[in-house]
């Protein structure tokens, strides 16, 4: 087990209602799990609780892995080039210069950006920027990656290829990945297990396993059982959505 929420209750200070109440769930090691839900449902709040930016009023969050957080917008520093951006966590952890250069070079080649080390974020495309942000998340040394709607700002073509890219990375990396998304297709295509956030406050998560192998292809999304699963998921989410 990589992460456990045990009877967690959380409320933002200046708001009367709880976001989550007495919520419990577990995340297994090595899996790729999606959090899905309408906006404002608490999925991003769950992330902020996991990475310690927020603390629950009640309950316990047990996180056995080191977490690396990849925010929704890449948040690359425009004053740093690709290499320097990837090295930020290593600089913070005071890793020696030669070592962090070597580590950054390895990560940059892992995300397929060799030759872009000295480029600045504004010279990169949206997909490349996300890959730099992913490399920066890896350089924290985390075993659990928290990806907060990482592809939502990309155009649909780039998003599709980035999703396939992420699957490849996950298969190669042996890391636990948690993904926040509001895109049903993305959740089904990427995850082994989908956790649906419903209700105000969220009291429990609806769990939907995705019956697809690790090395899946996009054409598998056309299987009847997957189409049915997606329809059910959309139905659940529509009940939640307030227009």
């Amino acid at each position: 087990m990589a992460l456990k929420f045990k009877n967690v209750t959380f409320r933002y200070e200046d708001e009367p209602d709880c976001i989550m109440e007495n919520l419990s769930f577990e995340i297994e090691k090595g899996g790729l799990t999606s959090f899905i839900g309408a906006s404002g449902c608490g999925k991003s709040t769950a992330f902020r609780l996991i990475n310690g930016l927020l603390t629950p009023q009640e309950g316990e969050i047990i996180c056995e892995e080191k977490c690396g957080y990849m925010p929704q917008h890449d948040l690359l520093f425009p004053w740093k080039n690709v290499e320097q951006n990837v090295m930020i966590p290593l600089v913070v952890q005071k890793v020696a210069k030669a070592k962090r250069k070597a580590m950054a070079a390895e990560l940059i080649s892992r995300v397929g950006l060799e030759g872009c080390e000295k480029k600045y974020p504004k010279e990169l495309s949206g997909g490349m920027r996300q890959r730099v942000a992913f490399a920066r998340t890896l350089s924290t040394g985390a075993n659990m990656l928290l990806l907060d709607e990482p592809f939502s700002a990309l155009d649909s073509i780039t998003r599709v290829s980035m999703q396939e890219w992420l699957l490849e990375q996950w298969r190669a990396l042996d890391k636990t990945i948690l993904l926040v998304t509001h895109d049903v297709d993305e959740a089904v295509f990427l995850s082994e297990r989908i956790l649906v956030f419903t209700g105000h406050p969220v009291k429990q998560l609806m769990e939907i396993p995705v019956p697809l192998p690790k090395d899946r292809t996009r054409s598998m999304l056309l299987r009847p059982e997957i189409i049915k699963l997606k329809e059910e998921l959309i139905k659940v989410l529509r009940q939640e959505a307030t227009l």
Partner: peptide, 23 residues
């Protein structure tokens, strides 16, 4: 959001000042 990102990495207030605020 950049400050928060630095906090999740474990950056100190001084590191956040030097690496984010000053630039």
């Amino acid at each position: 959001r950049k400050i928060e990102l630095m906090q999740t990495i474990g950056a100190s207030a001084l590191q956040i000042f030097l690496h984010v605020k000053v630039p």
